[in-house]
Nucleic acid binder design. Structure first.
Length: 464
RNA sequence: GGCGGCAUGGCCAAGUGGUAAGGCAAAGGUCUGCAACACCUAUACCCCCGGUCCGAGUCCGGGUGCCGCCUCCA
């Protein structure tokens, strides 16, 4: 497995710290709102990476936090006249609803800031004790000048950062680059006790603290969107490495943005599309396939048109799956011929292609194409290979990569008796060459969202 | 200003220096009672100009255009 490491700006061979184990931390949502398509990209990408590691037999420890203490949450809660806790609980539930709809598996843990104040305070104490942080009247800041490697992830020379830094209104800091670890209590904000008085954690410290609490001082993979590289991840490195005296992360993975009209989708620009709204119009797997159809580090342009294209492609994959199921149902229980054996073994080539793509820096776009190629292979040969065993083998083979990608999870439910009766009636009409009646029934069912296809083995149906 | 990314057929999009994957759409055909599905067929001077090389979409230099980070942001 090769992964592009933001730290070194190149693809590197993945070697886990512990044999056969992957420790992953992915920055989760700040829960003050529903999440949008841009937010969904890392969730889906890293979900697929995690699934792939599991598929390859790794023991994956996957942590994704919920930021439930934050300025935006406080503001939104005050506006709504509820507590921060009430607001964040609501949006955690909403996050899970959308994430589950998108087929994103739950992390092994979703730690919340509000439940890890002790870990956070402990980490800040370590930093203060080692001279990497200082307290000014209840506000604690990280002393950037004490950490010479600051800027190594974003490749920002310290001097440039200094000169580019905004003029601070706050002159408590020793240096404008110093950032908040602990914020002194203000009226109307949630607070906890600490050695520096009442207050709450700054934004960056939570990931360092919770990552250490759940995964240890050095982890394999840390993921997130490119916009987190600076300052968030840069600050995480400073905090963790200063406190622990050890490397924090082996591989830094950052996904590209989702654009609208070639401009970054973001809340501040207001050009975002909520997952909730997209799912009113499109199947969640369309969203998944859309995101996976482009390499994760490239920009991905969103439009209704592109989702429609993807929708048609997904339908093609479902046709392969459902054709196979239909044929398996109608197949004969005869022994696999030598020919069939050879063919089912040859299908393995597509699995190999799939794995090769995935292992080349998670090239899901290419991985998806091998799924399409396998589908075509199956469509071509499925007429000549008719034993149940061969068809079942093809099905199992086809579903393997699909499962890693989190696609093709839906199955055709059973039909109502009324509809089955109509289908039977239409078959009789066709046998009687009453094509007018047959077409009538087909149109009727089509209007109800059921599409009929006549095949050698009988009538197939699917939902439109 | 500093750091970084991108430019491939009508649209989307892969591409490890050796004469361009895959998907969508449109066209013709096969199959079908008609369809649908599926299959078959045709379809790309890889933004421009130089350079290296037997050979470059792929490497180097220079342009042009677009985007991102440097401030909350996936």
């Amino acid at each position: 497995m090769r992964l592009y490491n933001t730290m070194t700006n190149q693809k590197e061979d993945f070697k886990p710290i512990e044999e056969n184990t992957v420790k992953m931390y992915v920055c989760g949502p700040t829960v003050y709102n529903l999440f949008h398509l841009g937010n969904a990209r890392p969730f889906i990408i890293f979900d697929v990476l995690r699934r792939y590691f599991i598929y390859k037999g790794y023991d994956v420890k996957y942590i994704q936090n919920f930021t439930d203490v934050d300025d935006k949450i406080i503001n939104a809660a005050n506006e709504a006249g509820i507590t921060s806790k009430e607001l964040s609980e609501k949006y955690i539930a909403e996050y899970l609803t959308d994430a589950h709809a998108l087929g994103i598996h739950d992390a092994d843990a979703n730690p919340k800031v509000s439940e890890h104040i002790k870990d956070i305070v402990g980490l800040i104490e370590d930093l203060v004790a080692k001279g990497f942080a200082y307290n000014v009247d209840g506000n604690v800041y990280f002393r950037v000048s004490a950490f010479p490697e600051y800027g190594k992830l974003s490749k920002q020379p310290l001097d440039d950062l200094m000169s580019g830094a905004r003029i601070e209104v706050n002159d408590e800091k020793e240096n404008p680059l110093d950032f908040s670890l602990w914020k002194k209590y203000k009226e109307g904000e949630p607070y906890w006790d600490s050695p520096w008085g009442k207050g709450r954690p700054g934004w960056h410290i939570e990931c360092s603290a919770m990552s250490r609490a759940y995964l240890g001082e050095t982890i394999d993979i840390h993921g997130g969107g490119q916009d987190l590289v600076f300052p968030h991840h840069e600050n995480e490195i400073a905090q963790s490495e200063a406190a622990n005296g050890k490397p924090f992360v082996k591989y830094w993975l950052h996904n590209g943005y989702i654009n609208v009209d070639d401009v970054k989708m973001s809340k501040s620009l207001g050009n975002f599309f909520m997952i909730r709204d997209i799912l009113k119009e499109f199947d969640p797997e369309v969203v998944r396939l859309f995101i996976l159809s482009v390499h994760y580090r490239n920009p991905l342009n969103f439009s209704d048109e592109s989702l429609k294209q993807i929708e048609s492609g997904l339908e093609r994959l479902y046709n392969v799956k459902n054709d196979l199921l239909f044929k398996i149902e109608h197949a004969q229980n005869i022994e696999m011929s030598t020919d069939e054996k050879q063919w089912t073994e040859a299908l393995q080539k597509h699995i190999d292609d799939f794995e090769k793509s995935m292992e080349d820096d998670i090239n899901t776009a290419k991985a998806v194409s091998s799924l399409f190629e396998m589908g075509k292979d199956i469509n071509i040969h499925t007429d000549e290979h008719t034993s149940r065993e061969a068809l079942q083998a093809a099905y199992d083979c086809f579903m393997q990569p699909a499962k890693v990608l989190g696609l093709l999870a839906k199955s055709n439910e059973l039909l109502d008796e009324d509809i089955q009766n109509l289908i039977d009636e239409r078959q009789q009409a066709r046998a009687d060459k009453d094509f007018k009646r047959a077409d009538e029934i087909r149109d009727l069912l089509k209007a109800e969202g059921i599409i009929l296809e006549d095949t050698r083995e009988g009538v197939k149906w699917k939902r439109s």
